[in-house]
Amino acid sequence: MVFDLPADAMVAVFVAVVSILVVRIGDLKKASVFFFLFCLLMAGAWVRLGLYRLGVVEIGIGALMTGFVAWRALGRLPGLPGPDTSPVHPVETIPAALPLSLAGSVGFMGFLCVPAVWFFLDAPLSAYTVYGLSGIPVAGAGFFSLVWHRNLLRRLFAFNVLGSGIFLLIVSFAAKLARPIDAVFVMVAAGLFVAFVASLIVVIVLGRQPVTGAPGDPKEGSAHVR
């Protein structure tokens, strides 16, 4: 597709904003709707980059398969959907969990800037630059959420978001230097499939866990609430 800075920048900003909404919004039901939307936006980004095969894979595996599994998981969590009451570490176990997670996420994003600067700095602005740069906040949001949240469904969303950020980065890096896209395509498709299988494992486990203990109670049956 032809590069159109305002349109592409808008899609990229949407991708980043929706990724933050997916991991930060309190209501898990809303979060899973936003997750579905996020996958559609990712597919849109791939199409804008001219990678139609990746768009199809993103919709098929990411939006439909993983989205469906996450939706099923909601039905299996008693007390949910609704306000998520247990998104944090029990404070007594890890002091300064929030500053540590935030600092880790900022450090991770800073680290990702190193290759981004190397690949994008002295090249003309293109769609790859725009989408590649949007991958950094997306990956940062996913990383933060994966470290911070104990809720399994939230961790799944976080993992998917982190993965998407990384996929955006590596695809745009490879395309920037005009490498054959096959290897990266297999990496991204495999990554999406891995996220789907992981979601499936978690949902099957959730489905058979008898729910006893209160949120945050590290005893029997609390696998998914901590």
């Binding site: 990702l112 290759p115 690949f119 994966l146 399994l152 961790r155 993992f159 982190l162 993965g163 990384i166 980065l169 590596i170 695809v171 890096f173 490879a174 920037k176 230097l177 490498r179 290897a183 990266v184 990496m187 990554g191 891995v194 996220a195 992981a198 494992i201 978690v202 486990v205 590290p218 609390s222 696998a223 901590r226």
Partner: peptide, 26 residues
């Protein structure tokens, strides 16, 4: 709990590896 902990550690590890591998390829 221990199995799921392993699952998420493993997933985080493989994404980090994938990032490095992708950059090396690019």
């Amino acid at each position: 709990n221990a199995g799921l902990r392993y699952l998420f550690f493993m997933l985080l590890g493989s994404l980090t590896y994938l990032m490095g591998a992708g950059i090396l390829y690019a």
